[in-house]
Amino acid sequence: MAVTGIILVLFLIAHMLGNLKIFTGETAFDHYAHWLRDIGTPLLPTTWFLWIQRAVLTLAVLGHIGAATVLAMRSRAARPVRYAHRRKIHVNYAARTMRWGGVIILLFVIYHILDLTTGHLNPQGDPANPYGNVVAGFAPERWYVTLFYTLALVTLGFHLRHGAFSAFRSLGQQTPKGEQRAKIAALVFAVALVGGYLLVPFAVITGLVS
């Protein structure tokens, strides 16, 4: 869970930083989007880097889901008989909704790909104009898309907060002081990443980016 999660988080960071280039203007953003297709050339054919990246991310997602399934099965096997009386344990919202949050995020990723990668659900869907696709996708009249995007990212934030903290613990952060630092670091990271992603749709819907 920790290792596959780290791979996905590294991609989320890189993807967020790339998204923020939209604030540098249409020409710069389109140049960046087209540059992604040419990474590795002439050593690699055009778009091969993207396909390699997609393959790695797909394996990471499948591995993450597989690890979650194995952990859930082990948890049930460890206690096959239900407690007659279960003592109340303080568990935060993120931990309680970790599995469902993962399903919501997966559905959002599928929609996001169909919208801004393949263009099938985008009003413009022009591969030659990525900037225009983003502006069209988050246009004010498509407020429901921004709402869905926001809800999915908030869910991702909860998922990241709990996941990052769990990863710190799994990878050796076990002292009481270390636990508190891990909680703070996980919260700050989740808020910063979600905030970075939300800047783009809200900039479009408010007219800051048009």
Rank of each mutant, 00 (worst) to 15 (best):
M1V: 07
I7L: 15
L8Y: 05
L8R: 05
V9K: 02
F11C: 01
L12E: 12
I13V: 15
A14W: 12
M16C: 09
G18P: 04
G18K: 02
I22A: 11
G25Y: 08
E26R: 15
E26K: 15
H34E: 11
H34C: 06
W35Q: 10
L36C: 05
L36E: 06
I39F: 02
I39S: 00
P42M: 01
L43A: 15
L44K: 01
L44H: 03
L44E: 03
L44D: 00
P45T: 06
P45S: 07
T46V: 14
W48C: 04
F49Y: 12
L50N: 11
W51A: 05
I52D: 13
Q53V: 12
R54M: 15
A55T: 15
V56P: 08
L57P: 12
A60M: 08
V61R: 08
V61I: 15
G63K: 08
H64R: 07
H64A: 10
G66K: 11
T69S: 13
V70W: 10
M73T: 11
R74D: 06
R74Y: 00
R76M: 11
A77I: 01
R79L: 02
P80E: 05
V81P: 04
R82K: 14
Y83W: 06
A84P: 10
H85M: 07
R86C: 00
K88D: 13
V91Y: 04
V91R: 14
A95E: 09
R96H: 05
T97W: 09
G101P: 02
G102K: 01
V103G: 03
L106E: 04
F108W: 13
V109L: 14
Y111W: 15
I113D: 09
D115R: 05
D115K: 06
G119L: 10
H120V: 12
L121Y: 02
L121R: 01
N122Q: 06
G125K: 01
D126S: 05
P127D: 09
N129G: 03
N129I: 03
Y131P: 04
Y131S: 03
G132V: 08
N133S: 06
N133P: 07
V135K: 02
P140S: 07
E141H: 14
T146G: 02
T146A: 05
F148L: 08
T150K: 01
L153R: 06
V154N: 10
L156Y: 11
H159L: 04
H159C: 04
L160M: 13
R161C: 12
G163D: 05
A167K: 01
R169S: 10
Q173N: 11
Q173M: 15
K177I: 11
G178Q: 10
Q180G: 12
A182N: 00
K183Q: 11
K183D: 07
I184P: 07
A185M: 10
L187T: 11
L187I: 03
F189E: 09
A190I: 06
V194G: 01
G195M: 02
G196S: 09
L199M: 14
V200A: 02
P201W: 01
A203M: 06
V204H: 05
V204S: 05
I205V: 00
